[in-house]
Design a protein around this nucleic acid. Structure first.
Length: 488
RNA sequence: CGGGGUGUAGCGCAGCCCGGUUAGCGCAUCUGCUUUGGGAGCAGAGGGUCGCAGGUUCGAAUCCUGCCACCCCGACCA
């Protein structure tokens, strides 16, 4: 039991907050709902960014940057889109401050009111499609495959570090295509890319699916999602990829001349993942001792601790291992701080989720051995100094794999097939997790179920088997099961 | 936006009900000595506009009024 972290069984929300703060990931800021991402937390985010950015480039995308501010009139051009975001927009109304004539510091200068108010982007479809209109004239300009890394603001009532903050960091891809098929293909390509990233790098198993009409992105024809399951058995939407049809092309009049010299509306996609992934990462793997980071995303993968403190022989052994690990591309830190004792360091690095810890002491060295501990299972072994680096190279792979397998088993154990409403409520309130059940396909039923149970349809899995059945609420015929869950 | 809670040193808290020397305690920090294989011990030191603004009073962290911020639980959402 950790001295500083509330246990998950005691208070899951508090545990989450404790991890975020004690592992130096983020702090609350002076601004309501906004967080300060601390260097260690940002290091993990930088790794996430770097891997994803590489994957986007490999699939033909390029980065660009569009403005933070969006003219108010743009937002109202696509009816459903406005509807979806209007309630949570920050609005810039003035452009100047002045000294308070009554001596109360600075005040907004009433004479500096903007003629057209600016919206701080909650997402960039509108400003981007307004720009694309000028960029796209011919089929030769397509496809246009652009991504941007940016911050966005959604004025949330209730916020939680990483999971839902008023300002967050994300990437948003916005692509334009000559045909519907090609745009749908793009949407699915990105969904696969997100799933691959989540599973292979974050070690977070996800279910790919399509959203119900009720959960769809405002302005999309179809929203695809990757859904993960957290340790408290609540679902987390970890990434979305939208097929926008011609909705934004219509709203912003983006047309191209096709090969037959006819004007056509462009087909669009947009897709994004955000700093919310950090929340998913925490709640997938971490335990009551602190953070657990999968090796592929850990800013520092290995830490070496001299026991009890640095000295010539220990330094020499540490240098040897460090050189070997660095040559393998493994990041390693040697903690030579003499003020802190080994026991303190052990606890601290466990809190920070460093995947592998090496302890080197005189007693070990006399045998030519070092102690190697893994964060995921907390197992310790003695390994020969000479082969330690090689052992660790494999161990990091094992940890990455083990974290994924462990999370996948947890998730798979919490997908429950249910065929009537009483059972649905029973499972939801005891075991939680995903519930696979028949649904009649109407928004009305979905909303009703949400009102009654707080569970929502997370997705209709893409690899779903067709199966005749009856809706758990209405008894109407249904052709497939969908996944319900309580969600973040 | 509804319900609950909190604001006192970097962090965590006590003191407030019942106003009264110089506002305490633990952790952390600094100095020294002894320690060192799972969160060291002793001795000493530094660090505070008691969330903000008014008011009551001879006197306010404490009582009154207003405001602000944050956290938790709901409704809404990535």
């Amino acid at each position: 039991m950790s001295k500083e972290i509330t246990s998950r069984s005691e208070d899951y929300s508090q545990w989450y907050n404790d991890i975020v703060r004690k592992a130096n990931l983020a702090d609350h800021s002076a601004v309501r709902g906004c967080m300060v991402i601390k260097p260690y937390g940002f290091g993990i985010w930088e790794n996430i960014k770097s891997v994803l950015d590489g994957m986007f480039k490999e699939t033909g995308h390029v980065n660009a940057y569009f403005p933070l501010f969006i003219p108010k009139s743009f937002l109202s051009k696509e009816a459903e889109h406005v509807e979806g975001f209007a309630k949570e927009c920050a609005v810039v109304t003035h452009h100047r401050l002045m000294n308070d004539p009554n001596g109360g510091g600075v005040v907004v200068d009433p004479s500096a009111r903007l003629e057209e108010e600016l919206i701080v982007r909650p997402t960039s479809e509108t400003i981007i499609w307004n720009t694309y209109r000028d960029w796209i004239k011919s089929y030769r300009d397509l496809p246009l495959l652009i991504n941007q890394w940016a911050n966005v603001v959604r004025w949330e009532m209730r916020t939680r570090l990483f999971l839902r903050t008023a300002e967050f960091l994300w990437q948003e891809g916005h692509t334009a295509h000559a045909s519907s098929e090609e745009a749908i293909q793009e949407t699915l390509t990105i969904l696969d890319l997100y799933a691959k990233f989540a599973e292979e790098y974050m070690a977070m198993p996800v279910i790919k699916g399509v959203k119900s009409a009720n959960e769809r992105f405002a302005g999309a024809v179809d929203t695809y999602t990757i859904e993960a399951l957290m340790q408290d058995s609540k679902a987390l939407q970890a990434g979305t990829s939208h097929f926008l049809g011609q909705n934004f092309a219509k709203a912003f009049d983006v047309k191209f001349l096709n090969e037959n010299q006819k004007q056509e509306l462009v087909w669009a996609t947009s897709w994004g993942v955000s700093t919310r992934l950090m929340g998913g990462l925490i709640m997938t793997h971490s335990d009551d001792q602190g953070l657990v980071i999968p090796p592929r995303l850990a800013p520092t993968q290995v830490v070496i601790i001299p026991i009890p403190k640095p000295g010539p022989e220990i330094d020499e052994a540490a240098d040897k291992i460090m050189a070997e690990l660095k040559a393998m591309g493994i990041s390693v830190k040697y903690d030579t701080d003499k003020k802190k004792r080994p026991g303190f360091k052990f606890a601290e690095y466990e809190m920070h989720g460093i995947p592998v810890r090496i302890g080197i002491g005189k007693r070990d060295l006399e045998q030519g051995m070092v102690e190697i501990a893994r964060r995921d299972t907390k197992e310790k072994t003695q390994q020969p100094l000479d082969s330690a680096a090689k052992y660790i190279q494999q161990l990091l792979e094992d940890i990455q794999q083990n974290l994924f397998e462990r999370a996948k088993k947890f998730r798979d154990d919490r997908i429950t097939k249910v065929d009537d409403f009483d059972q649905f409520k029973e499972v939801l309130n005891t075991k939680g997790g995903f519930i696979s059940a028949h649904w009649d396909g109407t928004t009305e039923t979905e909303v009703k179920i949400k009102e009654l149970t707080k569970a929502t349809i997370r997705c209709i899995p893409l690899d779903n088997e067709l199966e005749d059945g009856k809706c758990i609420l209405t008894g109407q015929p249904s052709k497939q099961r969908v996944l319900f869950a309580k969600a973040y």
